[in-house]
Design a protein around this nucleic acid. Structure first.
Lengths: 209, 209
DNA sequence: TAGATTGTTAATCGATTAACAATC
DNA sequence: TAGATTGTTAATCGATTAACAATC
């Protein structure tokens, strides 16, 4: 089964989130143009993405919501659970811990880390906080495969190196330090300052017209 | 002057951030392949982006760091300041307030908002927090053109509508609710769950090989 | 049936990279 | 000078969209 393009993965993740809402509202079927409307993209885009899943609609009724959620899950999720650790329990890390926890049954936040000894043993949304020094030990014992970096900029590189050394498979980086990881580690960068500057630029441009 | 592609804007923002660091270290000139190495992209990419700025290097010395910062600023920044408000002072909003504040002289965080009356008048990194009810009034009096949405999911649409109604020009959305704004408002979405699911997907894929 | 919707191919658009002459 | 680096065009790659036959 071919690996999906990153953009398609992003959209599938969003389709699923919307579809879960629709399921709560007892919607059974949805047309490509309806789903497109919700996400604010084109209907062709939706159909093409679903084509890549090999999933077909019921003629003139649309796509069955529940089954589509199932099929997206089969493609995106790992059969076994994937364990996630968040490193850096400042405001951002704390926000993420409560935000991400429980949102996907197959993505479990199993450990939090902070340099502040006072936070040791603390629980946020039911997940325990460990000191940095136990990073390697906990990653191994809890089989953590994904690390989310929310430490201050200055520690980002050190933390990333530690994670890689301890066999992490994926990193989601919330600092604005570009990280250098081996090619077998998946890396996703998430730079909030760049996003803000981008909006600001397009605001400026739209006003100059 | 043509509007730059979004991807180029993102990279220019990152170049500038790195260049400012280099300036602190008294680096005067940098080659395209050096800058490329830092950001982890190709040297051609860098040269092409700078070509779009119409900026040239000094032969065999590289690009003058200070001047390049200046030129990027001329292209990305508004001549006058752009004022930013953050709506929703939970952990995420608080993190963003301290994270974004002061990072770009031309992007000023001038107001924070929260529904919790207790936070009224509070200051975070020197910026005052107002109640929701004053949103329109403050946006106008402080000439806010960009709104950052960090409220809970359920209020996202309402807040976006309020911002649009009060003439906001750009929105940076940190909730995972897709927003529907008029085409004259620049919108940047920032979905952390999708990012996490994306990393998780590529981790899974890399392990199946 | 008529017509709405689909799945898929081919065309288009946009972004990245390869290639290379020009420079000092 | 020889050779490192550049700016720019053309080629390539990838993602989106247009077009349309197929379906019930």
């Amino acid at each position: 089964m071919d690996t999906l393009p990153g953009k398609t993965v992003e959209r599938l993740s969003q389709y699923r989130r919307r579809l879960l809402n629709l399921l709560d509202d007892n919607v059974e079927y949805i047309f490509s143009h309806e789903l497109a409307e919700i996400i604010q993209i084109s209907a062709v885009q939706v159909r093409r993405d679903l084509m890549l899943l090999g999933f077909s609609s019921v003629h003139r009724k649309g796509y069955p919501v529940e089954m589509l959620i199932e099929v997206i899950g089969q493609r995106l999720d790992d059969e076994k659970e994937q364990n996630v650790a968040i490193i850096g329990m400042g405001n951002l890390g704390t926000a993420l811990a409560s935000y991400l926890n429980g949102i996907r049954p197959k993505l479990k936040i199993v450990a939090l880390f902070d340099i502040d000894k006072k936070k040791e043993g603390m629980e946020i949304v039911g997940v325990k906080c460990y000191p940095f020094s136990e990073l390697g030990k906990v990653i191994k014992s809890k089989r953590v495969s994904i690390g989310v970096i929310t430490v201050p900029q200055t520690s980002a590189k050190k933390v990333a190196a530690q994670l890689v050394k301890n066999g992490i498979k994926g990193i989601l980086n919330f600092t604005h330090i570009p990280l250098n990881v081996p090619s077998n580690v998946s890396l996703e960068e998430y730079d909030m300052i760049t996003s803000l500057e981008k909006v600001a630029y397009f605001v400026k441009e739209s006003q100059e017209k």
